[in-house]
């Protein structure tokens, strides 16, 4: 059983918690040892879990926390820029991140995945998909052959066909990235957008078909 602490107790931190918690429950139902001992969260706001049905505590603040033993960490942040900044800062302090992949996700065994990834229940990740470090696949459909760069985040009902999403991209709910497109690094695809052409780095696109805005 692996000791695990979740970094951040916001919405993505809670998603990460439920992935680990549900994986434990699934193991127990099968008569297996629970894989995770969830020690708690670290978060700069110590009351972030007030009112939530989560028993595990906030152990301390992120700014003051250092690894204590063999515990591993799960990244609970969704915004790409913040995720990268925090991941680099914490890894420099010796934090060791692991992937959290829901047993209720449909994930091909032959995907390539970096470290610190989160794949929530309801996601499908097809064959030969490549996920960089600290990617979040949150209730999304990633078709076989797609590539998702480090620190990128896909959200509910996003569909990425056989496309390439570069580093640090945020894809809003129900967006569709169609076959063959490349979404440039650090860009954003707004909710419900349909990307039919390559997206330049660093821009925001919106609409059907998606066009640059702002």
């Amino acid at each position: 059983m692996q000791d695990v602490i979740i970094v951040c107790a916001g919405s993505y931190g809670k998603e990460a918690y439920w992935v680990l918690h549900e994986n434990n429950r699934q193991a127990k139902l099968k008569g297996l040892e629970e894989p995770y001992n969830i020690l708690g969260f670290i978060n700069d706001k110590l009351d972030a879990l007030d009112g939530y049905d989560i028993n595990e505590p906030i152990l301390g603040t992120i700014q003051d926390w250092y690894p204590k033993g063999d515990e591993k960490y799960v990244m609970g942040l969704g915004t790409p820029k913040d995720k990268k900044m925090l991941a680099e800062k914490l890894m420099a302090r010796g934090f060791q991140f692991i992937n959290a992949v829901s047993d209720l996700a449909n994930v091909s065994p032959d995907i390539k995945m970096g470290i610190g990834c989160l794949i929530t229940m309801g996601s499908t990740v097809g064959c030969e998909v490549e996920l960089g470090d600290f990617t979040n696949i949150n209730g999304s459909m990633i078709y076989s052959g797609a590539k998702i760069g480090s620190y990128s985040t896909t959200t509910g009902f996003t569909v990425v066909e056989n496309a390439t999403v570069k580093e640090g991209v945020y894809i809003g709910s129900k967006a569709v990235i169609t076959n063959g497109c490349t979404v440039g690094a650090w860009s954003q695809v707004a909710v419900g957008s349909v990307v039919t052409e390559d997206v330049r780095p660093g821009v925001t696109v919106f609409g059907m078909p998606a066009q640059e805005i702002g």
């Binding site: 091909s108 097809g126 064959c127 078709y143 076989s144 797609a146 056989n162």
Partner: peptide, 11 residues
């Protein structure tokens, strides 16, 4: 004719 073949393989 594209990587959907791999999705079919998975099924």
């Amino acid at each position: 004719e594209d990587s959907f073949g791999l999705d079919v393989k998975m099924i």
